[in-house]
Design a protein around this nucleic acid. Sequence first.
DNA 1: GTCTATAGGTTGATAGAC
DNA 2: GTCTATCAACCTATAGAC
Lengths: 204, 204
Amino acid sequence: MNDRVSTKTRILDVAERLFGEKGFDGTSLRDITAEAGVNLAAVNYHFQTKDSLIDAVIERRIAPVNRRRLEMLEAAGPNPAIEQVVEAFLVPVLECSLSPMVALMGRVLATPDQFVYRVFKKHLAAIAQRFADAVGAALPELAPAERLWRLHFMGGTMAHVLSWSHVLPEMTGGLCDPSDRKALTARLVSFLSAGFRAPFTEAH
Amino acid sequence: MNDRVSTKTRILDVAERLFGEKGFDGTSLRDITAEAGVNLAAVNYHFQTKDSLIDAVIERRIAPVNRRRLEMLEAAGPNPAIEQVVEAFLVPVLECSLSPMVALMGRVLATPDQFVYRVFKKHLAAIAQRFADAVGAALPELAPAERLWRLHFMGGTMAHVLSWSHVLPEMTGGLCDPSDRKALTARLVSFLSAGFRAPFTEAH
DNA sequence: GTCTATAGGTTGATAGAC
DNA sequence: GTCTATCAACCTATAGAC
């Protein structure tokens, strides 16, 4: 067997992929251990519970992505263009090409359930304010609530793109190809930046 | 007991709500029958299998929404503004206020799994081409692939808004209130229409 | 149509040998 | 750290009485 990676890492890798493909409820610990070629009891030994495994799987990927996001935000300086803010949000995820992480991230964003939400919120809190501030710096005329709404819209667009990547070519008769990350990033930045710049006056 | 609604309808109603709240894998038939106050075997009698129940739950809501979408598209005439196309897509779902249907729709759009996708595609196929044509009529300079990408982006934005509605107020410290449907629709139409109008030139 | 009862399989988690 | 064996609970689905 390939013992160059530890049992713990093998579990994390397989769990990441299966959670992304079939969801958290749709993946059993047995699915994971079977594919990882490890014993069922190893999961409980290394991670105690399934919830705690989910937490570990998510944490391993979100933390570096958010670090990279803050780096890009900082590199954009105190007066960023909205395009730079959007890029700082998207690129750290999209640049991971077709790694299983992408499907996992999509799944996390598309699973508004109690537990997943709690894990997600823990990591979101660390960057949400920074992005809200950055949007405010780029578009100072945008009302605070509207900033948050549009950040939420951006998150949704990204989540959907990540989640449906693997079926989009078939859905569109091959017209849309999510594997071309450069083009996809350009499309998203153009669409979302225009959305952020859209006029909005509160209905009265 | 309240026998003004049939067992079959009670199952559909409760299933719709629980599927929306906890997902398809996360909801057992026992969860449904317990809350509906009906016998477990009634599900199999009326719907045969769980998958077939999921199908019925989704179909019941998607069909009228899509009918309404096509009506609005038709009412917009052969030369619609992009705002009218976006509204035709969003309003038939959003106008249902906080009904359980909203969470269900979000869940369907956020569950890219084999079975749910198959059900969803069946209903999507009937309107996707019409919306692609409508976007083409509103923005003829947009390349066909770009049209589909931006429709996909719009679907993601809507899915996310629907899915996270129930936690968004808590996530934003009360700044974002999804229950004000009029304002939410206006926000989405403004954001998305601007996105559709965004310039885009293929990277080379 | 609705019920009870149950089959037959899967789940997450643990105890205890090595 | 890794294994086998097992528990208790849960799952979907069905058979058969009423």
